[in-house]
Each structure stands twice: as structure tokens, then as C-alpha cells.
Amino acid sequence: MTKIETFDSVWDAVADMSGQAASLRARAEPMRPIAAVIEGNDWTPSEAAMHCGVAQPRIDDLLRGRVSRCCLDVLVNIATAMGRRVHVELQAA
């Protein structure tokens, strides 16, 4: 019989180390509201890229939920270009 592993979050399941899981989680959090702004403005990926000052493939990765291909500093820059502010909070584990 195979033992079934359980995890606190999907990020813990897909990452090899807790630091990697934390990084994936931190990047995923701003991706959802950024995608919502893009969809709320009815921007195509090329329009969103133009508004945000990034290449269209970055927007495509963001909209497809490819967390591993999005880096936090670029997500902060995109949010800022959209007139949004990103807040980072440290919490006790």
C-alpha cells in the first residue's frame, strides 16, 4: 500500500525546500490581482505589456499562472506601472 503525503499548501507539495515554497507563494500572491486588473481593463496581453512596460511573454506567463517564470521584482514593477502598490509582510511561522 502506498502512503499518501499531505501538505499544508500546494507550494509545499511542489517545492523541494521550504524556502522555495515561500518564494512561490510570495510570487503567486501579487499575480492574481495583477491578472484581475488586466482582465478588468479588457487588455489583450500586448496591451497589458505596453501599459506595464514589459515584454508580452511576461504577461502571457503571468496570465497563465506560471509562477516559476515570474520574478518578484518584475511583478512589483508591473503592479507599480498599473498604479498599484505591493505590500510585503513578514509573519511568524
Rank of each mutant, 00 (worst) to 15 (best):
E39A: 11
A36W: 00
M50P: 05
R32V: 14
W43A: 00
A21K: 03
A26S: 11
D42Y: 01
G40Q: 02
A26N: 10
V88W: 02
I38T: 02
R32M: 12
A49R: 01
R85H: 12
V86M: 07
S46D: 10
V88M: 03
A92W: 00
V14R: 08
S9P: 10
S18E: 15
D73W: 10
A13S: 09
M1W: 03
N41I: 01
H51F: 11
L62D: 03
A21H: 05
A35F: 01
V67L: 00
M1A: 06
E5C: 09
T80W: 10
L90F: 06
H87N: 06
P45G: 02
S9L: 09
C52A: 13
H87K: 05
L62V: 07
C71T: 14
R27D: 04
V86D: 06
H87E: 11
E89P: 04
A93D: 04
N41A: 02
D16Q: 14
A55Y: 01
N77S: 13
P30E: 02
G65C: 02
M17C: 14
P45T: 14
S23L: 13
E5H: 14
C52L: 10
L24M: 11
V86I: 12
R84P: 00
P33H: 08
A79M: 08
V74A: 11
S46I: 06
A26P: 09
V10K: 00
R84M: 07
A21Y: 05
M50L: 12
E5P: 15
M50Y: 15
S9W: 03
A22L: 12
A49Q: 04
A93V: 03
V14H: 03
R85Y: 10
C70V: 13
G19N: 13
D60Q: 11
A79G: 11
A13C: 08
T6N: 01
G53Y: 08
R66T: 11
D61Q: 09
R66K: 14
